[in-house]
Deep mutational scan, measured.
Amino acid sequence: PPDDERKKAEKAARSGNEEKAREILERLGYSEDEARELAKRLR
């Protein structure tokens, strides 16, 4: 489910793995720019 994926992205971002967070968010349908912004904010 998307919620689980989003949680994974948050966890990745918090542990400093912004790249992985961005990949997950892009898979969820965010654009590259949106995903980058979100990954930064989740950190």
Rank of each mutant, 00 (worst) to 15 (best):
P2H: 13
G29K: 01
D4P: 10
K40V: 07
R41D: 07
K7W: 12
E23Q: 11
A12P: 03
K7G: 09
E32N: 07
L42C: 01
A13T: 04
K20T: 08
K40N: 13
K7C: 09
E10D: 05
E34R: 04
Y30E: 01
D33H: 11
A9Q: 02
R22S: 03
A9Y: 05
D4C: 01
E37I: 12
E10F: 12
R27Y: 08
E23P: 02
A13F: 04
E10G: 06
Y30A: 01
L38S: 01
K8E: 15
A39I: 15
E5Y: 08
R43N: 10
P1H: 14
R41L: 14
G29V: 00
Y30H: 06
E5W: 13
E32C: 01
R36V: 06
I24F: 04
E26R: 13
P2C: 12
E10Y: 14
I24E: 03
E19L: 13
E32R: 12
A13V: 04
R6L: 15
A39R: 01
I24M: 05
Y30P: 01
R14T: 09
L42H: 05
R43E: 05
E5I: 06
K11M: 15
L42W: 15
E37H: 09
R22L: 06
P1S: 15
L28F: 04
R41H: 11
R27H: 08
P2L: 14
E32K: 14
D4N: 10
K40G: 07
I24K: 02
G16L: 06
A9T: 04
P2A: 15
R6M: 15
P2Q: 13
S15D: 15
N17Y: 08
L28M: 14
A12V: 06
K11N: 13
E5D: 12
A13Y: 04
S15Q: 14
G29I: 00
E37T: 09
A13D: 02
E34F: 05
N17L: 07
D3Q: 10
P2F: 15
R36H: 05
E5S: 09
R27W: 07
E32F: 11
P2N: 13
E19H: 08
E37N: 07
E18C: 00
R6V: 14
E10M: 12
G29P: 00
S31H: 04
A35V: 03
A9I: 05
D3F: 08
D4Q: 13
E5Q: 11
L42F: 13
A12W: 15
E26S: 06
A13W: 07
G16I: 04
E26K: 13
Y30S: 01
D3G: 11
E19T: 12
G29F: 02
S15W: 08
S31Q: 05
L28S: 01
R14G: 05
D3I: 10
K8P: 04
D33E: 13
E23Y: 07
D33A: 14
K11C: 10
D33L: 13
N17K: 06
R22P: 00
E5H: 07
A21C: 05
K7V: 11
A13R: 03
R43A: 15
R41V: 10
A35L: 03
K40L: 09
A21G: 04
D4K: 11
P1W: 15
G29W: 00
E19S: 09
L38E: 11
L38M: 14
E34N: 05
L38D: 00
E19D: 11
L28A: 07
E32V: 12
E37A: 12
L25S: 00
E37W: 09
R41I: 11
S15E: 15
N17H: 10
K11W: 15
A9C: 00
R41M: 12
D33Y: 12
R6K: 10
A39G: 01
R14K: 13
P2R: 14
L28P: 00
P1K: 13
L42S: 03
D3K: 08
R36M: 08
D3H: 10
E34C: 06
R43S: 11
R41F: 12
R14N: 06
A9S: 02
P2K: 11
Y30Q: 00
D3T: 11
A13I: 06
R43T: 07
A35P: 00
E18T: 10
G16V: 02
A12I: 06
P2I: 13
E18S: 05
E19F: 07
E5F: 10
A12L: 14
G16E: 04
L38K: 03
E5T: 08
A35R: 01
E34Q: 09
D4V: 11
L42V: 05
D33W: 10
R6A: 08
K7D: 10
A39W: 02
K20H: 09
L25Y: 08
A39P: 00
I24T: 01
E26F: 05
S31N: 09
R22T: 05
K8S: 10
N17I: 02
K40E: 14
L25V: 00
A21F: 08
P2E: 14
R22E: 03
A12D: 04
A39M: 07
E10Q: 12
R6S: 05
E37V: 10
N17R: 05
S15I: 07
R27T: 08
A13N: 02
E32M: 11
N17V: 03
K40M: 13
E23R: 09
D4H: 11
D33N: 10
E23V: 08
L28V: 03
S15P: 03
S15F: 07
L28H: 02
P2D: 14
E5L: 15
A12E: 12
E23C: 11
D33T: 11
E37C: 04
E34M: 08
R36Y: 08
R14I: 11
L38A: 04
R6W: 15
A12F: 15
E37K: 11
A13K: 03
D4F: 12
L38I: 13
D4W: 11
E5N: 05
A12S: 05
I24W: 05
L28Q: 03
E10S: 06
L25T: 00
E26H: 09
S15H: 10
I24P: 00
R6E: 07
P1L: 14
R43M: 13
R14Q: 13
L25E: 01
E19A: 13
A13H: 02
Y30R: 00
R27L: 10
P2W: 15
R43P: 02
A9K: 02
P1R: 14
L42M: 15
E34Y: 09
P1Y: 12
Y30W: 06
E23A: 12
S15V: 06
R14S: 08
L25M: 02
E18P: 04
G16M: 05
A21M: 05
K7A: 13
Y30V: 02
N17Q: 08
P1Q: 14
A39C: 03
E32A: 15
E10T: 07
R43L: 12
R14M: 12
E34V: 07
E10I: 15
K7P: 04
E37Q: 09
K11P: 03
R27M: 10
D4G: 08
E18L: 15
R41Q: 14
P1D: 15
E18A: 07
A9G: 03
A12G: 04
S31A: 06
R27A: 14
R27D: 04
N17F: 09
I24N: 01
E19M: 11
E5G: 07
A12Y: 15
E10N: 04
L42A: 06
E18W: 12
L38Q: 03
A35Q: 03
A12M: 11
E18N: 04
E32T: 12
R41C: 15
K20W: 10
K7Q: 13
R22M: 11
Y30K: 01
K20I: 12
R36F: 07
K20V: 12
E37F: 06
E34K: 05
K8A: 14
A13M: 05
L42I: 07
L28K: 00
P2T: 12
G16A: 05
E32G: 08
K8M: 13
K40D: 08
L38F: 07
G16T: 02
A12T: 05
S31R: 05
R27Q: 13
G16Y: 04
I24G: 00
D4M: 09
Y30N: 00
R6T: 08
E34I: 06
A35T: 02
A21N: 04
L42T: 02
S31L: 02
E18V: 14
A9V: 06
P1E: 13
A39N: 00
L25K: 00
R41A: 15
R22K: 07
A9P: 03
R27P: 02
A39K: 00
E37G: 04
D33F: 11
N17P: 03
E19C: 03
I24A: 03
R43W: 12
K8R: 11
K8G: 05
G29A: 01
E10P: 02
R36A: 08
R36S: 06
D33M: 10
E18H: 06
G29N: 01
I24Q: 01
E26L: 15
R6Q: 10
G29E: 01
E19W: 08
K40I: 08
E32H: 12
E37Y: 09
R22H: 03
G16S: 05
R41Y: 09
L38W: 07
E34S: 06
D4E: 14
